[in-house]
Computed example of a mutant assay.
Amino acid sequence: MDIMELLKAVILGLVEGLTEFAPVSSTGHMVIVDDMWLKSKEFLTEPVANTFKIVIQLGSILAVVIVFRNRFIDLLGLRKTKKETSAGQGRLKLTQVIVGLIPAGILGVLFEDYIDEHLFSTQTVLVGLLIGSVLMIFADKFAPKEPIVTTVDQITYRQALTVGMVQCFSLWPGFSRSGATISGGVLTGMSHRAAADFTFIMAVPIMMGASGISLLSNWQYFTLDALPFFVVGFISAFVFALLSIKFFLKLINKVKLTPFAIYRIVLVIVIYLIYF
């Protein structure tokens, strides 16, 4: 395998790592760079390319686990947690995360085949990017000026369920899971940072489940020819996702969602010009 192929793996890992958790839609970005691997050398057939997407997504998941490692340790009950606060809120519970996952989980199972067959075209991704941008701008405009919930530990079950229901929009490729869930969170009274933390925590079981199932179905494509490409892409996605998550969490309360929405609208125009 030559250096150019490995460079492509780095670039694709970079795109995945930088866009997976920011509210800009990694799917929308991958549409732009898809041809970089699908038109690559012979070993990168379409099934291998699809497997590569799963591998680099796992790199992004690992980055979230690292950033929120203490939170996941607490959620899984692997150490004693502090007593509840004087306000009686305590810490975020695993059951609240599960409540947030249920709506999209049910719809995802029911409509998985339809989504895969009909919603992964460039046109549908553009629609998702555009409508998702409108939701994000709406959320910034109509969210309470003073958030009721400033940390993820103050989230209620009702808020978790509401965020989970809004997350269903992200089943439409291009809508963006983080864009939908952060919007839903701030509309229920969460700060942007609290909504982002909850979004990232929920993303891990969703992405691990989907990636795990896909890996089991595509294990035969981990050949010696493709393995260096996979490894380089995984590492690239992990490193850039780690940097992206830390930067985004520091930034989100200051800039909110609208700048990302504007960027997405510009992206729609760029993709349209490229493909149409």
Score class of each variant (00 low, 15 high):
residue 153 D to C: 09
residue 205 P to V: 09
residue 190 M to Q: 08
residue 221 Y to Q: 11
residue 5 E to L: 14
residue 35 D to T: 09
residue 243 L to M: 14
residue 129 L to N: 09
residue 97 V to H: 03
residue 112 E to L: 06
residue 119 L to T: 06
residue 77 G to L: 06
residue 199 T to S: 15
residue 103 P to Q: 01
residue 71 R to H: 13
residue 125 V to E: 01
residue 123 Q to M: 11
residue 254 K to S: 04
residue 41 K to T: 15
residue 145 K to R: 14
residue 226 A to C: 01
residue 103 P to Y: 02
residue 198 F to I: 09
residue 39 K to T: 14
residue 36 M to I: 15
residue 58 L to M: 07
residue 172 W to T: 07
residue 107 L to N: 07
residue 92 L to I: 11
residue 233 G to T: 04
residue 77 G to I: 10
residue 259 P to S: 02
residue 91 R to S: 12
residue 226 A to L: 01
residue 231 V to E: 07
residue 90 G to P: 08
residue 84 E to G: 14
residue 31 V to H: 11
residue 48 V to E: 02
residue 8 K to A: 01
residue 120 F to T: 13
residue 206 I to C: 11
residue 271 I to R: 10
residue 44 L to Y: 13
residue 43 F to T: 03
residue 144 P to Q: 07
residue 221 Y to R: 03
residue 152 V to R: 06
residue 29 H to G: 01
residue 97 V to A: 01
residue 257 L to G: 09
residue 40 S to F: 11
residue 31 V to D: 07
residue 70 N to T: 12
residue 221 Y to F: 15
residue 161 L to T: 10
residue 230 F to G: 07
residue 31 V to T: 12
residue 37 W to H: 12
residue 174 G to F: 08
residue 219 W to H: 14
residue 239 V to Y: 08
residue 133 S to W: 03
residue 192 H to E: 07
residue 151 T to S: 15
residue 256 K to Y: 11
residue 264 R to K: 09
residue 161 L to Y: 07
residue 70 N to S: 12
residue 48 V to L: 01
residue 95 T to D: 12
residue 212 G to H: 08
residue 264 R to E: 00
residue 222 F to H: 07
residue 20 E to R: 00
residue 259 P to L: 01
residue 239 V to E: 08
residue 231 V to S: 08
residue 73 I to Q: 09
residue 105 G to W: 05
residue 169 F to G: 00
residue 109 V to E: 14
residue 104 A to T: 15
residue 59 G to V: 05
residue 196 A to N: 04
residue 119 L to G: 05
residue 21 F to K: 01
residue 155 I to P: 03
residue 211 S to Y: 06
residue 119 L to Q: 03
residue 93 K to W: 02
residue 183 S to N: 04
residue 255 V to Y: 10
residue 273 L to P: 08
residue 151 T to C: 08
residue 105 G to M: 04
residue 61 I to V: 15
residue 141 K to V: 14
residue 47 P to D: 12
residue 229 F to W: 02
residue 147 P to M: 06
residue 175 F to H: 07
residue 1 M to G: 08
residue 274 I to K: 15
residue 210 A to G: 10
residue 159 Q to W: 00
residue 19 T to W: 10
residue 38 L to H: 15
residue 142 F to D: 07
residue 146 E to Q: 13
residue 130 L to M: 13
residue 49 A to Q: 12
residue 16 E to C: 10
residue 216 L to Y: 13
residue 173 P to D: 02
residue 133 S to H: 00
residue 32 I to P: 09
residue 207 M to L: 13
residue 24 V to W: 06
residue 199 T to D: 12
residue 245 I to C: 11
residue 124 T to A: 14
residue 118 H to T: 15
residue 13 G to S: 06
residue 249 L to R: 10
residue 147 P to N: 09
residue 143 A to Q: 03
residue 248 F to Q: 01
residue 160 A to T: 11
residue 20 E to A: 02
residue 161 L to R: 09
residue 143 A to G: 00
residue 15 V to R: 12
residue 103 P to N: 00
residue 115 I to T: 01
residue 97 V to R: 00
residue 158 R to L: 14
residue 186 V to S: 08
residue 262 I to Y: 15
residue 54 I to P: 05
residue 234 F to D: 03
residue 149 V to C: 10
